[in-house]
C-alpha cells in the first residue's frame, strides 16, 4: 500500500561531486519496496522547489527502518536534498510504481547509464535470491561518474565503458564487447538516458531478447492523478508513475 511517511536524514555518502547516497530512517516500520519502485520526496525548506521529486529506491533496510536513495544533482531540488542536516524531517510518498519482473531467466544483463544504476541494487538482490546469473554494464562520460562498482561487484560481474576512455572500454555503452556475446543472455534490464535505453532496446529486439527499461519522465503527483508523466505505448499514453516506471521495451512506441 502507498504510504505518506515522515523520515529523518540518517547519513550521506558522497560518491563524486554531484552524486550521493541519502539514507533516511523512520521510527515506524517501513513498507516493502520492490526493485524498480520509487518515492516522491518532498524537498524540505525550499519554497522555490514546489513539487516533490520522484527518485528510485536504491536500497531498503527493514530491520533498521531505513531507506536509501542514489541521487544525482540535476537542479534545485536534488541539490537541496544533498544539503540537509542529520535528523531533518523528510516526507516521502512510497512505494510507488511497478517493478522489474524477475522470473525464468538464467543469465541476465543489467545496463545502467549515469544515475540509471539507482534501481539495480534491489534488482540484483532479487536476481541473486533466485540464482540468476547477473552481469552489469555501466556507462558514463568519464571515470568520475562510474560509482559503486565494488557494491555491484558483490552481486555479479561488472563491466564499464566511458566515452572518454578514462575507465573500462572507450565508447558508448552499446559498443561494449559484452554485446558480442549478447545471445548468451536471456533478459536485459536497462535504466539511463532515453537514447541509451533505446539503443539497448534495439539490440534486444534484433536478438529477440526480452528487455525491460525504467523511465524517468518528469512527474507531478506520482500516483496517477495528474497524467503529466505519460509515455506513448502501443496501447496509448500511459502514466510512467503507475503503469511504469518499468516497461517492456516492446510496449513502448519507440521509433528504433
Amino acid at each position: 500500500m502507498k504510504k505518506i511517511q515522515d523520515f529523518r536524514v540518517k547519513e550521506y555518502r558522497w560518491l563524486n561531486e554531484t552524486g550521493y547516497l541519502l539514507t533516511l530512517y523512520s521510527d515506524l516500520k517501513i513498507e516493502p519496496v520492490l526493485p524498480g519502485n520509487f518515492a516522491e520526496i518532498q524537498v524540505p525548506g525550499t519554497p522555490e522547489v514546489f513539487l516533490r521529486r520522484p527518485i528510485s529506491v536504491f536500497d531498503a533496510d527493514y530491520e533498521n527502518r531505513s531507506i536509501t536513495f542514489y541521487i544525482k544533482v540535476a537542479g534545485k531540488g536534488t541539490k537541496k536534498l544533498g544539503e540537509l542536516n542529520q535528523g531533518t524531517i523528510v516526507n516521502i510518498i512510497y512505494p510507488l510504481g511497478n517493478s522489474f519482473t524477475v522470473n525464468g531467466s538464467k543469465n541476465v544483463l543489467v545496463v545502467g547509464g549515469g544515475s540509471g544504476i539507482a534501481p539495480f541494487v534491489l534488482l540484483a538482490d532479487e536476481l541473486k535470491k533466485k540464482n540468476i546469473k547477473t552481469t552489469f554494464l555501466f556507462g558514463a562520460r568519464t571515470k568520475k561518474e562510474i560509482v559503486l562498482t565494488r557494491e555491484f561487484g558483490r552481486l555479479g560481474k561488472v563491466w564499464v565503458t566511458t566515452e572518454d576512455g578514462s575507465l573500462g572500454e572507450q565508447g558508448l555503452v552499446t559498443q561494449h564487447t559484452v554485446f558480442k556475446d549478447i545471445l548468451t543472455f536471456d533478459k536485459i534490464y536497462s535504466c539511463g538516458s532515453d537514447p541509451m535505453m533505446k539503443a539497448v532496446a534495439k539490440i534486444a529486439g534484433e536478438n529477440r531478447i526480452d528487455c525491460e527499461v525504467s523511465l524517468e519522465n518528469m512527474m507531478a503527483c506520482g500516483i496517477g492523478a495528474c497524467l503529466c508523466c505519460v509515455t506513448e505505448t502501443t496501447s496509448g499514453n500511459k502514466c510512467v508513475c503507475t503503469d511504469g516506471p518499468v516497461f517492456n521495451s516492446k510496449e513502448l512506441a519507440w521509433q528504433i
Partner: peptide, 11 residues
Amino acid sequence: YPRMAETASGM
C-alpha cells in the same frame, strides 16, 4: 510529453 513544468510557487 512533456506536459508539465515546475515554476515558482506553481506549475
